[in-house]
Amino acid sequence: MAVTNSDPTLASLRWQCRRGMLELDLFLQRFLLHGYADLNQQQKRDFIEILAFPDQELLEILLGQVSATEQHINEIAEKIRQCAAL
């Protein structure tokens, strides 16, 4: 599953997806494998933005327990959620 450095941004993101909870690791690693490549440039920026959320808040958003105030965050969260059961 190692990502080579053909895409340095992806290599960096892969490390940003290492989190303090197994649930978040699963959400984010699966999305990197199955969903990230299909994003447009704006959506890739949204993904970087959602990675900056603290772990607990991010988990609650991804599990659909709370909604973010910004719509674009909820949209990227939905894309991440769709890849979680793959």
Binding site: V3, A11, W15
Partner: peptide
């Protein structure tokens, strides 16, 4: 062996 010898965010080496 790993096959990534880059320097920036070489997660293969860390793993």
């Amino acid at each position: 062996y790993i096959n990534d010898f880059s320097r920036t965010f070489n997660t293969a080496r860390i793993e």
